[in-house]
Design a protein around this nucleic acid. Structure first.
Lengths: 350, 350
DNA sequence: GGGACGGATGTAAACGATTGCATCACTGCT
DNA sequence: AGCAGTGATGCAATCGTTTACATCCGTCCC
């Protein structure tokens, strides 16, 4: 029913080999013949079978993307960046969400993308040594976001530098008692980002002559609710922080909500700084560390495309810059504490 | 280099046909043989070539998803729902972002998913008659979100009912001068959702004996900025609205920002209601019309899977309910207007 | 004891491209 | 005239499965 290359060849009066070459724009086809083949294909509304082509050529025209979440702002942005570049090169995008740890394991034992993709982009997933090995054994270029793995391409931000900037910003405002809301998940896989940011937080304090106080580190999973709970815990300390660095904007949102509900104000009572420059941050006037998110997706896709065009050289690593985005939730430390409490209120005050 | 089915057959001492049957759990294979084949496959770390399998069987094990945005909250949620169901059935997810109109057109002229997928999920894209025809001609089950197309499965919310509920909520609070921020994009494709919500807005006003005033309809593209600008326009009218229904939460966020920047408060000065129940809405205390977003993705995927298991029956349409989520940005109309203005302020007031 | 039956297995024909190699017809030189 | 070189084209092997059909063999029952 569906026209095959043989049909096109018949109609154009040439061999299938010529059809194949003509359709793919390869050389060694006369203009007249190409013309004729194109017309025949058009008339039969022919389109190549990706399976047959893949089987014969070994190429799939597809790039796999594996990630831990599809429904978070960050990954949506990255995905958009990847998609834009891939689309421009006529590559398809096969999405594989490794949401929970079980799916993650299954992915690495069964390797369902083996032979399905020409390249693989891994977003922020922690990879064990055997997992890295498994990916490498797929025999296609791999690019990872958020870590640096020899043999694979990579794009990342400098989490330490970003976190240090955030903490230094607070220190420069006069804060000494600086808390951190950290999203160490109890996910058995150890995500690298939270760890890097937390360590930089401690190191920066130490550099400034402040002794890190583990009481001031409030942990929870990522997410607004967890951020809110963490902030509540910090505020109930005997000697609460005057400023808080939240590992992510998401958690900072929760922190802001807690402040509001407790009748406290940022930055008057507590300064808050986040990390990511989430789209909502501007709305909430949150000071944060910004990173170019969609850009990172584009870079990842470009690396894959480079590797595919491949001069087989060692893949590169790109570090994209972060920047301090100063908005309204950070300010100088108050000398008198605690400030006057006001009754809880909604976003827009009565 | 990579083991093929022939290698496995050789090692297990059976034919390739038996290997194929054993591996796929088909009947007519003795337990002992199956055992032996499984072991051989394991030892060779064999995995089937999707291309070869697809070529031979005509099935791809892949479902295509086409959508207009990947970097918006709504689509991320839907995608997560789809992914979860597909993953559970071992189906792959091929993502196709038809961001701008040019890509959209190219998609429908070239049909790059033809023969690539066993089923197709279309999210909220307006389909012309020839486009619908083109999709139908792919010969695979199709399910669409947001519209009702004969021959295709479908999932949608009742936009009219939802919008009517929103407007009625405002009317019940005593509002008579009710504006709408509507996101009619100048995208040449006519998205259906904005239109439905706008028409319901007018109809509901009329039903309540209020004459719709076109001055009170502020248009813009979707997005926070556009919502903010639209609200600014409404507020600068000689007789501004006391309540505003925003077509989407996103636009409502912008509206709230404008209010705040102008020193006005919701709901004291202006009530605001949105639509979607975006994850940020709870944070901003926005009254809105909620819809189960991830759920819709799951339903779409389930429809495809049902069609694939296929008893060839006419695909179904599911309408999922919306619900009014009352939070803090709507309230009774003030008798005295305009209320006292206060100076502009940030999220957390001074 | 022999035919019918049924489950396990093998044979081989698709599926629909890509591509290395051979062929062919010119062109331009010597 | 003969030959090398070149661009266009065709031939046919190949990729790795699935699956319709044939075969084989043991059982059961009359």
């Amino acid at each position: 029913m569906r026209a095959s290359i043989t049909d096109v060849a018949g109609r154009a009066g040439v061999s299938t080999a010529t059809v194949s070459r003509a359709l793919r724009g390869l050389p060694h086809v006369s203009e007249a013949t190409r013309e004729r083949v194109l017309r025949a294909a058009e008339e039969l509304s022919y389109s190549v079978s990706p399976h047959a082509a893949g089987l014969a050529s070994g190429r799939t025209g597809t790039v796999g993307v594996v990630l831990p979440f599809v429904n978070r702002w960050f990954y949506g942005q990255v995905l958009a960046g990847i998609d834009a570049v891939l689309r421009a090169h006529d590559l398809d995008l096969l999405l594989h969400n490794l949401g929970d740890a079980r799916v993650h394991r299954r992915f690495f034992t069964r390797m369902p993308l083996r032979r399905r993709v020409d390249g693989l982009i891994v977003l922020n997933l922690p990879l064990s040594a055997p997992e890295t090995e498994a990916l490498a054994s797929m025999g296609v270029p791999v690019t990872v976001l958020g870590s640096r793995i020899p043999g694979f391409g990579g794009v990342c931000i400098d989490n330490r530098a970003g976190a240090a900037t955030a903490v230094r910003h607070l220190i420069n405002l006069g804060h000494r008692r600086i808390g951190m809301i950290t999203g160490a998940p109890d996910d058995p896989r150890g995500f690298a980002t939270p760890i890097a940011r937390r360590e930089a937080y401690r190191a920066t304090l130490t550099e400034a002559g402040i002794v890190p106080d583990s009481e001031l580190e409030a942990r929870g999973h990522a997410g607004i609710e967890e951020g809110a709970a963490a902030m509540a815990r910090l505020l109930s300390l005997p000697d609460p922080p005057t400023a808080v660095f939240a590992e992510s904007d998401q958690m900072a949102f929760g922190a802001l909500r807690t402040l509001r509900r407790m009748g406290l104000r940022a930055p008057a009572d507590v300064s808050v700084i986040g990390f990511d420059d989430h789209e909502t941050s501007e709305l909430l006037d949150l000071t944060t560390i910004g990173q170019p998110v969609a850009r990172q997706g584009e870079l990842l896709a470009r690396q894959i495309i480079g590797a595919l065009a491949g001069r087989g050289e060692e893949p590169g690593h790109t570090v994209v810059p972060t920047r301090l985005v100063i908005r309204g939730t950070t300010g100088p430390v108050r000398t008198a504490r605690p400030s006057s409490r006001r009754p809880p209120e909604a976003l827009t005050p009565p």
